[in-house]
Amino acid sequence: MTIAGQEARSWDAGGWDGRWTKTKRETFLDHLSMTGDVASAAAAAGVPVMAAYAKRRREAGFAAAWQMAAAGAYERLEAAIVAQVLGGGSGIDLKTAMLLLAQRPAPVAPPARPRDDRREAAAALLKQLRAQAKRGGTPEPA
């Protein structure tokens, strides 16, 4: 099977030992960022395509890096479209490029920051101390 001119690798791809090294990870993500093509990124890194998808499912950090790399590829596509429309482009097929952009996934919002519960905890503690002071006759906290 051929995807974007690259052979899609299976699980038993020659030379694949089942391990993701730092170099393989970086090569895959760099290539994905430049091309937006998962199959060619996997081929460049020497890993099976299915291994890349499996790693994305298993590891949240890799999935986040994948998402950032894919976003970079979409940004490059947008820049190429703008350049071509303004007359300095490289002759990309605008209709196809626009169809690709229409398929761009919506950006995922970053996780919400945890609330700072220190004020709430301090208020609750102060309330408990005041209640204890009333029961025991000790002076109330300030």
Rank of each mutant, 00 (worst) to 15 (best):
G18V: 09
A8W: 08
R119D: 14
A44Q: 11
E78V: 05
Q67N: 09
P141A: 12
A44D: 08
Q6K: 13
A52S: 08
L126F: 06
G5W: 10
P139M: 13
A79N: 11
F28K: 01
G87C: 06
G89I: 06
D17S: 07
G87P: 09
A60L: 11
D116Q: 02
A42C: 04
G46A: 04
S10V: 05
R135E: 12
Q132T: 11
P48S: 08
M34A: 15
G88K: 13
K95Y: 08
V82F: 09
G136T: 15
R119E: 15
M68H: 09
L101H: 02
I81K: 11
R19T: 12
A13Q: 08
A51H: 12
A52F: 06
Y53R: 04
A63R: 15
L29V: 03
G88T: 07
A106F: 04
A69N: 02
M98L: 13
V85W: 08
R25H: 11
A13N: 03
G88R: 15
D37V: 13
G5H: 06
E59R: 10
A43F: 09
A97Y: 14
A60Q: 10
V82Q: 10
L99T: 07
D117S: 03
L32S: 01
L126A: 12
A65E: 15
S10C: 00
P111G: 11
T35Y: 05
E59W: 11
G91D: 09
G61A: 08
G89D: 08
R118N: 06
G89T: 06
G137E: 03
A124Q: 07
